[in-house]
Design a protein around this nucleic acid. Structure first.
Length: 105
DNA sequence: GAGCTGACAATAG
DNA sequence: GCTATTGCCAGCT
C-alpha cells in the first residue's frame, strides 16, 4: 500500500467528535516527518476520497489551512457541528487537543 | 525529465 | 522557550 493510501485509510478512521494531528497520522504510517504529505493529500484528495479533512489539524491544535475552499472558518464550523469545541483567537481557530485529540483505535 | 512547492513536525542551536 | 534548518513524497509547472 502506498503512503498516500495509508494516510487516507487512517484519516477515514478518525471518529466523529475527535481530531488528529498531521504528525500523528504521519507517525501511524511509520513516517514521522512526513506531516507535510498528509496535508498535501488532504488538499488533493479530500473530496475524491470523501475524507473528513476537518478532523486533521497541526500539532499545536491550530487550524492552519491555507486552502480557501477548505477555509478555517468552514473547518471550525464542521468541527463544532460534531461537538468539538473550537476556540477562535486572533482570526485563527484552536482546538483543545487534551480533550479532543484522537487516540488511535 | 528535472526542479519546485506544499493543510507540518522534529531536531539542533 | 523560541528561532532556524532539515526531512518527507507526490503532484505540478
Amino acid at each position: 500500500m502506498n503512503f498516500n493510501q495509508k494516510v487516507i485509510v487512517l484519516i477515514k478512521k478518525i471518529p466523529k467528535g475527535r481530531v488528529a494531528t498531521y504528525g500523528q497520522i504521519a507517525s501511524l504510517v511509520s513516517t514521522p516527518r512526513a506531516a507535510r504529505m498528509v496535508g498535501g493529500i488532504l488538499h488533493r484528495d479530500s473530496e475524491k476520497y470523501d475524507l473528513p479533512w476537518q478532523r486533521v489539524i497541526n500539532s499545536k491544535g491550530m487550524i492552519s489551512t491555507t486552502c480557501q475552499k477548505h477555509s478555517s472558518n468552514l473547518q471550525a464550523k464542521l468541527l463544532q457541528n460534531e461537538g468539538v469545541k473550537v476556540i477562535k483567537k486572533d482570526n485563527n481557530y484552536f482546538i483543545d487537543l487534551k480533550k479532543y485529540l484522537w487516540r488511535e483505535a
